[in-house]
Design a protein around this nucleic acid. Structure first.
Length: 578
RNA sequence: CGGGGCGUAGCGCAGACCGGUAGCGCGCUUGACUGGGGGUCAAGAGGUCGCAGGUUCAAAUCCUGUCGUCCCGACCA
C-alpha cells in the first residue's frame, strides 16, 4: 500500500484528553478516532491490526476444535428475562422498544450470547451422540458502560470472540476447558503479548471454575495477586491469603473499657482520635446473607472480600445491611458496631480474631470499647479468610509471599455448569434414555484489547512497536526523495517484489522530507523500516532497521528483498513457536 | 451515580480575574527553494468562542441552566 493512497492521519502532538499510552499512541498513529465516549472508529491502519488479531484467534479456535457461527446482536429481551439476567445486567444491558405493526417489541443488543446460543442448542440438540460440541463467533458486543475510559480499553461496543461448549459430563467439560485454556495461551503468545493466567471469581455469570488472562500493565484496571516463588496468581477478588487459622489472645488481656468517641465512626477517624493503629481495631460490618444478618469482622486495615464471605456463609445473596437493620442488630447508629454483645451471628477473619486487646465499636452511639478479645468477649466457632489479600501476605500454595501487579483482562474462561441449560431447557438424552441438562462452558476474548494491550505495553517515547504478527503492515519502505527518479525506480521494484512474495508493505511515497517520514515511521511502529536513496543508493545498498533496535543494517540492493522476506518469516515463526 | 478538570480554527493552546476589532504555534492551500530525524521564504484559506437563556449600549469574557468530554471513586458477564 502506498501511504498517499490510504488514510493514515497521524498527529504530531498528544491529544489533550488521551492519558493512557495506548489511547494516546493509537490516536496519534492514526489507528483510531473517537466518535463519542466509549465508541471508536478503527481507521485503516487500526482495522488491519484488529483483523490480524481476529484471524489468529479464529485459527486457534478452529485448531482447538471449535466451530464458527454468527449470531444476531439484536435479541429478544424475553431470553434475558428467562435467565434472570435482565436484572443482573441492569443498566449495562442496552435495550429498547421498536414498533412492528401496532405492537411494541422489546429488544436488547447482546452483551454476550449465552442466552442465544443455549436457546439454539435447546432446540436442536437432543442426544448425547451429538455432543460434545463447541461453537464460537467473533462479533460486536454492546454494553452500556457506566464509565467508558482508557480509550479503546473500556468501550461500550467491542469486538469479542465468544465460545460456548456443550458437554454431557464433567470430564468432557474439563477436557474442552483445558483445550480452550491452551488455545488462549497460544493466541496471546502468537500475538506477542506477555500474559498471566490467573484464577478468577466467576461472578454473576455463575459457574464454579474460571481463569482470566491478564496483560501486566501499569494502567490495568484489575489487581492481580501473585506469589514471587511458586507462580500462584489470582485476581484480587479471588486470591486466597495463605492465612489458615487464628490464635486466641491469651496473655496481657486488658479489661473491657468504654470510651466516648462522639460522632467519630470511621476506622480512620477513631484511630486518629484514640491514637492507635488501624491494625489494633476491629472493623465490624453487618451483612444480610439470604435474609439473615451477620456481623463480619476484619482487622481495621483490611478490606472485606464479599466473595469470600458469600462462600464462607454458603449464601446465594449477600449485601450490606441497611441502616434500619444495623440499628436493630447493634442498637446503635452506623459506625459503632462491634462484636461485644451484638445481636446476630459473628464470623471473623483469621487476623481479626487474633488481635489482643482490640478496639471496636461498642454497639452504642458515640462509644467504642477497648480491650476486646476473642474467646473472652465474643465467641466464634471458626475463623475464615474473609478479606482481600494485601502486599506481603503469605502465599496459599507455598511459603513465599504475595505481591501485586495491575493487569488488563484480555480473556476469560468459565466452567458454567448447567445454569443456562436449566433455565432455557437445553437437555440431552443419555444412553439410558434419561434426561440431563447440558453442561456448559464459555470462553471470551476481547479482540480490541489484544490490540490495545499491545499498544499499551509495547512502545517507546517515539511511538508504537508492533510484533510482526499483528503489525498493520510488516515493512515500511521509505524513499528519501520521491522526486528522484533512481530512488523511485529502486523503491518501486522492491515494493513490487516484496508484495508479490506476500510481504505486507507500506510505502511512504509522500513528498516530504526524510526526517518527517522517519518520525511518522517510528510513530506507527511497523517492525521493519527500509530506507532507499541518498548516499546508500549510490553505494548500491538499502538501509534496513528494526523498530525495536537502534542500529540499521546496510543491505545490498540485490539481496534486500530476499533478506526482508526471511526476516518477516523468522519473526512469525518465532511467535508461532508457542 | 458522587467528586474534580476542560470545552475558543483539523491538533495543541493564549485571551476571561479587569466586558469594547478573536489571537499564537503546528497542520492545510498556492508558488519558489530544499531533500538523511517533524525545513525556509512569500502569499492565502479556515471561527455559530459547546448550546440556551439572562445582565448590559455592548458578552468568548459576568450570571443561570444545560450538553459534551476527560480524570478519581462507585460499578464492571
Amino acid at each position: 500500500m502506498r501511504w498517499s493512497q490510504t488514510f493514515i492521519p497521524t498527529m504530531k502532538e498528544d491529544p489533550s484528553d488521551a492519558e493512557v499510552p495506548s489511547h494516546r499512541l493509537m490516536l496519534r498513529a492514526g489507528l483510531i478516532r473517537q466518535l463519542m465516549a466509549g465508541a471508536y472508529t478503527y481507521l485503516p491502519l487500526g482495522y488491519r491490526a484488529l483483523r490480524k488479531a481476529e484471524a489468529i484467534v479464529r485459527e486457534e479456535m478452529e485448531r482447538a476444535g471449535a466451530i464458527e457461527l454468527f449470531m444476531p446482536a439484536l435479541q429478544p429481551i424475553e431470553l434475558f428475562e428467562r435467565t434472570g439476567r435482565k436484572e443482573a445486567f441492569g443498566n449495562v444491558l442496552i435495550n429498547f422498544h421498536v414498533t412492528r405493526r401496532d405492537h411494541k417489541v422489546h429488544l436488547a443488543l447482546g452483551p454476550t450470547h449465552e442466552e442465544v446460543v443455549t436457546d439454539l442448542i435447546s432446540k436442536h440438540i437432543n442426544s448425547y451422540r451429538q455432543l460434545p460440541l463447541t461453537l464460537f463467533q467473533i462479533q460486536t458486543k454492546f454494553r452500556n458502560e457506566e464509565r467508558p475510559r482508557f480509550g479503546v480499553l473500556r468501550t461500550s461496543e467491542f469486538l469479542m470472540k465468544d465460545a460456548y461448549s456443550f458437554s454431557t459430563s464433567i470430564e468432557q467439560l474439563d477436557d474442552v476447558y483445558q483445550k480452550m485454556y491452551d488455545a488462549y495461551c497460544r493466541i496471546y503468545t502468537r500475538c506477542g503479548l506477555s500474559y498471566i493466567p490467573v484464577e478468577a471469581e466467576s461472578g454473576p455469570i455463575g459457574g464454579d471454575a474460571s481463569h482470566e488472562f491478564m496483560i501486566p500493565a501499569e494502567n490495568g484496571e484489575d489487581s492481580i495477586v501473585r506469589c514471587g516463588s511458586c507462580g500462584y496468581a489470582a485476581n484480587l477478588e479471588r486470591a486466597d491469603t495463605g492465612r489458615t487459622g487464628h490464635t486466641l489472645p491469651t496473655s496481657n488481656l486488658a479489661e473491657l473499657t468504654n470510651v466516648d468517641t462522639p460522632k467519630v465512626g470511621s476506622i480512620e477517624a477513631v484511630s486518629q482520635l484514640l491514637k492507635c493503629s488501624p491494625t489494633q481495631m476491629l472493623k465490624t460490618l453487618i451483612y444480610i446473607a439470604d435474609e439473615k444478618p451477620y456481623a463480619v469482622l476484619v482487622r481495621g486495615d483490611h478490606a472485606v472480600n464479599e466473595g469470600k464471605v458469600r462462600r464462607a456463609l454458603q449464601a446465594t445473596h449477600l449485601e450490606l445491611a441497611d441502616e434500619a437493620t444495623i440499628q436493630r442488630v447493634t442498637g446503635a447508629p452506623v459506625g459503632f458496631a462491634g462484636p461485644v454483645g451484638i445481636n446476630c451471628s459473628i464470623i471473623a477473619d483469621h487476623d481479626a480474631a487474633s488481635i489482643t486487646n482490640a478496639i471496636a465499636g461498642a454497639n452504642a452511639a458515640d462509644q467504642h470499647v477497648l480491650g476486646v478479645n476473642c474467646g473472652r468477649d465474643y465467641q466464634i466457632d471458626l475463623s475464615y479468610d474473609l478479606r482481600d489479600a494485601v502486599d506481603g501476605d503469605p502465599c496459599p500454595k507455598c511459603d513465599g509471599t504475595l505481591g501485586f501487579v495491575h493487569g488488563i483482562e484480555v480473556g476469560h474462561v468459565f466452567k458454567l455448569g448447567t445454569k443456562y441449560s436449566t433455565s432455557l431447557g437445553a437437555e440431552f438424552l443419555d444412553e439410558h434414555e434419561t434426561r440431563h441438562p447440558i453442561i456448559m462452558g464459555c470462553y471470551g476474548i476481547g479482540i480490541n484489547r489484544i490490540v490495545a494491550g499491545l499498544a499499551e505495553t509495547l512502545h517507546d517515547e517515539n511511538g508504537l512497536k508492533w510484533p510482526m504478527s499483528i503489525a498493520p503492515y510488516q515493512v515500511e519502505l521509505i524513499p528519501i526523495n520521491v522526486n528522484d527518479e533512481a530512488t523511485m525506480t529502486e523503491t518501486n521494484r522492491i515494493y513490487t517484489e516484496l508484495t508479490t512474495q506476500g510481504v505486507e508493505v507500506l510505502m511512504d511515497d509522500r513528498d516530504a522530507r526524510p526526517g518527517f517520514k522517519f518520525k511518522d515511521a517510528d510513530l506507527i511502529g511497523l517492525p521493519i523500516r527500509v530506507v532507499i536513496g541518498g548516499k546508500g543508493l549510490a553505494d548500491g545498498i538499502a538501509e534496513v532497521k528494526r523498530r525495536d533496535s537502534n542500529d540499521a543494517e546496510r543491505v545490498d540492493l540485490s539481496k534486500v528483498v530476499e533478506s526482508l522476506c526471511s526476516m518477516v518469516k523468522q519473526d512469525l515463526a518465532a511467535l508461532n513457536k508457542a
